[in-house]
């Protein structure tokens, strides 16, 4: 039987059985060596991508929260800064006003004082001149007139004179 050629169209039952076995073995081996590893790997990839997405989502949420917080803080800080500047400006203005009014007051006081002094000086000078003039006039009058004049007339004349002088 070995090494004999069968007909082109021939049927061997043993070949049938062998082919069934072959097909079954090939099916199980292909399932084990091609489909199972690839499916496992795809499952793994799916899981990994899912975790990646979750992490990314979480990171994004965190970042958004942080951004919100930061912007809130920034706004707060800006407000505070504005407040501070405003207050500083206000106090500076107040101070300015104070300084100016102070200066004005002082200036006014000084002017007043100066005026008072001037007035006093003038009064004094006036008094002195009056005295001197009266003395001089008495002396001149005594010398020139050589006559008795009543003290009262005398006084009245001088006063009149001085008054005239003062008006000049």
């Amino acid at each position: 039987m070995p090494n004999t050629y069968l007909d082109l169209v021939s049927f061997v039952p043993w070949t049938l059985i062998f082919t069934w076995l072959n097909l079954f073995i090939l099916y199980s081996l292909i399932k084990k060596f091609l489909f199972k590893p690839v499916n496992n790997m795809l499952e793994q990839r799916k899981n990994e991508i899912n975790t990646m997405y979750e992490t990314a989502q979480q990171a994004q949420t965190n970042a958004e929260e942080m951004e919100k917080e930061y912007s809130e803080r920034m706004a707060q800080a800006r407000e505070e800064a504005g407040e501070i500047i405003k207050q500083a400006t206000l106090s500076a203005q107040r101070r300015e006003q104070e300084i100016i009014s102070d200066a004005q007051e002082k200036a006014a006081i000084m002017t007043k004082r100066a005026e008072a002094e001037i007035a006093q000086e003038r009064k004094k000078a006036y008094q002195e001149i009056k005295n001197e003039i009266s003395d001089i006039s008495v002396a001149i009058a005594g010398k020139m007139v050589q006559r008795e004049i009543s003290a009262a007339d005398h006084e009245a004349l001088i006063s009149q004179f001085i008054e005239n002088v003062g008006e000049v």
Binding site: M1, Y5, L6, D7, L8, W14, T19, N22
Partner: peptide
């Protein structure tokens, strides 16, 4: 001709096409 009978074990007939199948698998 058709397939060649390579060897027989008792009643089991093994043709060259089956051996080729094993190699292919």
């Amino acid at each position: 001709t058709g397939p060649k009978v390579l060897f027989t074990i008792g009643p089991v007939v093994v043709t060259n096409t089956i051996v080729t199948s094993w190699v292919i698998i």
